[in-house]
Design a protein around this nucleic acid. Structure first.
Lengths: 200, 200
DNA sequence: TTCAACCTATACCGATCTGTATACTTTTGT
DNA sequence: ACAAAAGTATACAGATCGGTATAGGTTGAA
């Protein structure tokens, strides 16, 4: 039903999988340009030859890193949505619950897509599509929930929820204040209830 | 009244000023680690010796870049706030108006502090204080406005406005949808009005 | 006038970067 | 059993990195 956005061309052999895991951790924690391929190889316990036999270039490792992380996030989110039922309110809460758990476990430094975007200047870079694709997909997801809630202006509400969500990821990463995702969740739910309530 | 948070130790001679301007543009557009000191020197029309005589290290150039940008943003914002009067509603609008103009002119790739944070892993890095300092200062600014509005829970409202603001900067930088800052402004104003309205 | 501050020009250093080459070993499916 | 795939180990290439050294030129104020 849905087109798979992953531009993956790499077969993940055991060595490639370990390399991708190590690269993902290092890229996220230290930044993409600050991590060299030698370090990735050492941390993964593979040789540089294996890296280049599987991925071909560092750029491709970066693309796989983002595509893999996007894939895992969507699967994690799908697990939460599957148990949320059909109520728009519950579905919205499920999304933010997933974000709260995900950020607590895997996103102490904020959104990996936003962070990667900070280091990539060329819009023709293949990672760009992955980054922008996830954001557009999240906006579409919010829009679907808002449309199902029969609010007056679902697109505007979805965009506002998107602002709260993105703002929470940033605020969490920079530790501006605690429980940012929970606050965003509460405020988004309140907005949805206020917009859907009067129509009932 | 307010302590100046700038950790600046550098005298900005004409050559240093040109270097800092070039570094700022390059760091923001391409990322910090992707820009070498040779490129900065070439673009600024100075020699590397001048760079190191004035700044001492690339790390210090990074700190000056962020501190300078923070300083210019605060001055730009102060200009808008000075003409806004004392009304909390007008002051909030003035902040978002400033953000809207600033992002349109100087922040096509999102918040420079957030982007720099993505490339810095060590919390002991001197740039960290500048980055986190600006976010905390913005939150305090929102909190002051909300307190003046006599709303029930000014701290929570300020944090919510912060989420909208940060989310708008990210969404603008990633071009998730157009006019993100304007939407954040409208939503923040609506929240303030809703929270202050019933008490009047 | 003289001295210090500021600057250009150029060459260099050791380290690190992405990527490749060569030779050999292990695993795996048929 | 055998061949292809996947892996290790190591060395190396060319470029670029941050940073330094040396020598000389320009400017402005005491």
């Amino acid at each position: 039903m849905e087109s798979v956005p992953s531009p993956r061309r790499v077969v993940l052999t055991p060595g490639a999988r370990r390399a991708l895991d190590a690269a993902g951790r290092l890229f996220y924690e230290r930044g993409i340009h600050a991590v060299g391929v030698d370090l990735i190889a050492t941390e993964a316990g593979v040789t540089k030859k294996t890296l280049y036999d599987r991925f071909g270039s560092k750029e491709q490792i970066v693309v796989e890193y983002l595509a893999d992380r996007d894939e895992r996030w969507r699967a994690f989110l799908a697990g939460h949505l599957d148990t949320a039922g059909d109520s728009p309110g519950r579905r919205l809460t499920a999304i933010f619950d997933a974000s709260r758990e995900w950020t607590a476990e895997n996103s102490a430094k904020g959104c990996s897509m936003v962070n990667a975007h900070a280091e990539i200047s060329d819009p023709a870079h293949p990672a760009y599509a992955v980054i922008v694709g996830q954001k557009r997909w999240m906006l579409d997801l919010f829009a679907g929930v808002c449309r199902d809630a029969s609010v007056r202006d679902p697109e505007t509400l979805a965009r506002t929820v998107m602002l709260l969500h993105e703002g929470a990821l940033v605020s969490h990463g920079l530790q501006v204040f605690p429980e940012a995702v929970q606050l965003a969740s509460d405020q988004a739910s309140a907005l949805l209830a206020a917009a859907a309530g009067p129509a009932r």
